[in-house]
């Protein structure tokens, strides 16, 4: 491991970290704008032109607010909770291939922090860790509502992780690899996995909504029943961390969906572009396309949030255990049979 490698990775990590924070920041703004336009309103438009400085104003507000730690709470865990939530949200970006290797100053740099060969499993692991932030925060608050919400979050995540894992198995049967880089590489041009795995994608997407605690599965922060949910007792920037973690999670799961099913940085006509623009600019255009897809997914997340009312708890569990899991298993069987038939002939 030479120092150039370390510096290269360090820069890449810093850039990706910065981008995910900025995207999460502007997701909070976009969320309000999208909500407003879907409801025939204007949304925030006072801070700066079109209100684009709104996230900044929110950040300042969050930092300035009084910090309250309840006396009956477990102080250490109370502080660890939001930190863990944000950490788990951020490290998910490490294995996502943001673009094909790009040639800068005579050096080919892969636009992926680390191509571990079990990238998909890593993502799953990190996503399931994310619930610990919620669990710990909810438990440490020493508040009934927070605890109930933490329990809900845990059971919801566990239930939907199963369906999510099963839906991805069908995909892995096709791709024969767990490395995200190779999965994306196989979807050259318009050869996207979603054409072969529409049902798998649907299940995966529904589960992503549940895993990120987004509406219609935002039961852990269901205001009507649980006040603020697991972050009821939180104030100031610790609350900000939780809210921020949710948006980063949304960004990461959008990226994962785009990479696994919607071709990542592949787009039709990419060979033509690569032949004409050379190895420096063509991969960057691919990256831009990838971010375009991510933004579309984030918009979709928001669109769904402002359309569908929250599920009831029993409906949520019914949907997960009796709906999605059997469907995912059926999807595996169908995929397996089709693959076997294709290999035979």
């Amino acid at each position: 491991m030479d120092s150039a490698f370390v510096i290269e990775k360090f820069i890449l990590v810093a850039v990706i970290f910065g981008i995910s924070l900025v995207i999460a920041m502007y997701s909070t703004y976009a969320e309000r704008k999208v909500a407003a336009y879907l409801q025939d309103r204007l949304g925030p438009d006072r801070a700066g032109p079109f209100g684009i400085l709104q996230p900044l104003a929110d950040g300042i507000k969050m930092f300035m607010k009084e910090e309250i730690i309840p006396t009956s709470s477990n102080r250490f865990l109370f502080i660890a909770g939001p930190g863990l939530a944000l950490l788990c949200a951020c490290i998910g970006t490490a294995v996502i291939p943001w673009g094909s290797p790009v040639l800068i100053a005579g050096k080919t740099i892969p636009l992926q922090v680390s191509d571990i060969n079990v990238g998909v499993l890593y993502i799953f692991g990190v996503v399931s860790l994310g619930v610990y932030g919620v669990m710990i925060g909810g438990w440490a608050s020493n508040n009934k509502y927070s605890l109930l919400s933490a329990i809900r979050a845990a059971s919801q995540n566990i239930s939907y992780e199963i369906a999510m894992g099963l839906s991805i198995i069908a995909l892995l049967l096709m791709t024969n690899t767990l490395s995200l880089k190779e999965i994306v590489g196989q979807q050259h041009g318009l050869n996207w996995n979603v054409w072969y795995q529409p049902l798998g994608f649907l299940i995966f997407m529904v589960c992503s909504f549940a895993e990120t605690n987004r509406a219609p599965f935002d039961l852990p922060e269901c205001e009507t029943e649980l006040i603020g949910g697991y972050h009821t007792e939180y104030s100031s920037m610790k609350l900000g961390f939780y809210l921020f973690a949710e948006y980063i999670n949304m960004f990461v799961s959008s990226a994962v969906m785009a990479a696994l099913y919607w071709g990542g940085y592949n787009y039709p006509g990419m060979d033509y572009v690569a032949a004409h623009l050379g190895p420096t600019w063509a991969p960057l255009i691919g990256t831009a396309v990838f971010f375009g897809k991510i933004v579309m997914f984030i918009f979709f997340f928001m669109w769904v949030r402002w359309t569908i009312p929250r599920f009831r708890y029993d409906q949520l569990m019914n949907l997960g255990w009796k709906g999605l899991i059997p469907l995912a298993i059926a999807n595996i069987i169908i995929t397996g049979v089709v693959i076997a038939i294709i290999e035979k002939f």
Binding site: A36, Q39, D40, W303, V304, W306, T307, I308
Partner: peptide, 20 residues
């Protein structure tokens, strides 16, 4: 859900009722 999403997206193109 698809029907509901159609309704909400149609509102994206409607005039907003806000008075500044």
């Amino acid at each position: 859900i698809a029907k509901g999403m159609g309704i909400t997206i149609s509102h994206l193109f409607k005039k907003e009722a806000t008075v500044r």
